[in-house]
Computed example of a mutant assay.
Amino acid sequence: MLILVLAVLALSLAVLALLLAVVGLRRQGRRRGVGGPDALPEDVHGLRQEVAALRAETRDALRHFAVVRYDAFGDMGGHLSWSLALLDDSGHGVVLTSIHGRSEARTYAKSIAGWTCEQQLSPEEDEAIEHARRSVPTAR
């Protein structure tokens, strides 16, 4: 009987110690701000700033592109002619076109600003620019 009383007493003390430990950890967490909106470690804030800087840098990168292949002449097949649009997030860049004939190929480059061109564009160049425009990612 004495052993049973001692066992119950030891178990009660263990439960009490566990409760005190949990309460202490919660108080310590509150003092540190764990769980609050500003509770992120400083390195996370630094990483967020770096990601924002990288996103700003890539806005000027020529990362939106599209290729349209076609037959420039009716008597030729194989879609050897092509138009390639290389643009940044603002629609600034270049459209390159290569027209392949039987005996020669000609290549043209036209500057694009704000998704438009001062020079007249072929339907295939317009199509390449439009495909590249649709590839612009949405803001996150």
Rank of each mutant, 00 (worst) to 15 (best):
G74R: 10
V15K: 02
R32L: 12
A39N: 11
R55F: 12
T107I: 08
Q120W: 00
S12C: 06
L13W: 13
R134D: 08
H45L: 08
A61C: 11
A21G: 00
R30F: 03
R59C: 07
A10Q: 06
L47S: 14
A139C: 02
Q49L: 13
G101W: 05
K110H: 04
L2N: 07
V94L: 10
M76C: 04
L2D: 12
T138F: 05
A128F: 05
T116V: 14
G46K: 15
R69Q: 12
R106E: 13
V68E: 12
L96H: 06
H64E: 12
Y70A: 07
L11K: 00
A56Y: 09
Q49A: 15
V136K: 13
S90L: 07
A61I: 07
Q120Y: 00
L86Y: 04
L84K: 11
P123L: 09
D75R: 05
L87V: 08
L4Y: 07
S135L: 05
W115T: 13
V94M: 08
Q119L: 11
V34T: 03
L96N: 07
A53K: 14
E57L: 05
G101A: 07
L6A: 01
L4N: 08
W82F: 15
A113W: 13
F73C: 04
R133W: 04
R30W: 02
A72L: 09
E124H: 11
L6D: 02
L86P: 08
V22D: 00
T58I: 12
H64C: 08
R26A: 00
G46V: 13
E57R: 01
V136G: 09
